[in-house]
């Protein structure tokens, strides 16, 4: 079996350079590649374009790269909880491309399916449609307008999984799967960090979410913080 393991996070990102486009997995702070983001911060790579559903919070997730002014452009669906993001966006330091969440996910997926573009009804009649090709289709008996949206072309995808084996097969845990699967298949080079790296044969092939063919490098991450953004609970009754 092909071995995809790299020694550590620094080796994993050795060839990520300034001006590159990265897909970064996670939804809010759930399922983000903590080790990879920390390594990008440490290395000081600049002018990055990040495709990520959110932009983290001020002091965690992609917010760390924003604080360091390493991001030139964000392509996201929702960037709410981040004051530094707001400041950079309003001052014009940061370019922002807001994309409907399903369109964002599907543009990642399309890249992994080898399809250059997709048609989606999301955004028809809104400012999202400005400058885009559209076409009417009758599908399941309903005639509707759809927008042409292109697959993302990202130099690297940085994803986080629960378990992975040395062949790069990945298993996600609960809602931490979110964008990680679509980005894992959609990156030109995909780097996966996992909480638990196991030998081949230890994962049941019936229960693998992302086949290792899509993964180029894998390593076991260290010291996961797994911060909770909105801690909501109910009382024992």
């Amino acid at each position: 079996m092909i071995n995809k393991t790299v020694k550590n996070v620094d080796e994993a990102i050795a060839d990520i350079q300034d001006n590159m486009t990265l897909m970064v997995g996670g939804f809010g702070l759930c399922g983000i590649p903590e080790n990879l983001i920390a390594a990008l911060v440490k290395k000081g790579i600049k002018n990055l374009t990040c495709i990520s559903n959110n932009a983290g919070v001020d002091d965690f997730g992609l917010g760390l790269l924003l604080q360091n002014k390493q991001i030139k452009k964000m392509i996201s669906s929702y960037v709410g909880e981040n004051a530094e993001f707001e400041r950079q966006m309003l001052s014009g330091e940061l370019e922002v491309d807001l994309v409907p969440q399903g369109t964002l996910a599907t543009r990642c997926m399309a890249a992994g399916y080898g399809m250059p573009a997709i048609y989606t009804p999301a955004g028809v009649g809104t400012e999202v449609a400005i400058g885009k090709e559209s076409r009417k289709f009758t599908f399941n008996g309903i005639e509707k307008e759809y927008l042409l949206e292109y697959a993302f072309e990202a130099d690297f995808a940085l994803v986080k999984a629960w378990k992975g084996d040395t062949a790069g097969n990945l298993v996600f845990r609960q809602t931490a799967m979110n964008f990680n699967h679509a980005m894992a298949i959609g990156g030109k080079i995909t780097i996966a960090e996992v909480e638990e790296l196991v030998e081949v044969g230890e994962l049941d092939p019936n229960f693998i979410h992302t086949p290792g063919i899509y993964i180029h490098r894998i390593f076991q991450g260290q010291q996961y913080e797994k911060r909770i953004e909105q801690r909501t609970t109910r009382k024992m009754s």
């Binding site: 609960q174 953004e229 909105q230 909501t232």
Partner: peptide
């Protein structure tokens, strides 16, 4: 529903980023 106190799981959230249960 929301988890009981102490049973929150960072990997299990809803679209509002709140901790939930299955």
């Amino acid at each position: 529903p929301f988890p009981f106190e102490g049973e929150e799981d960072a990997d299990l959230i809803n679209a509002g980023k709140q901790t939930i249960t299955t």
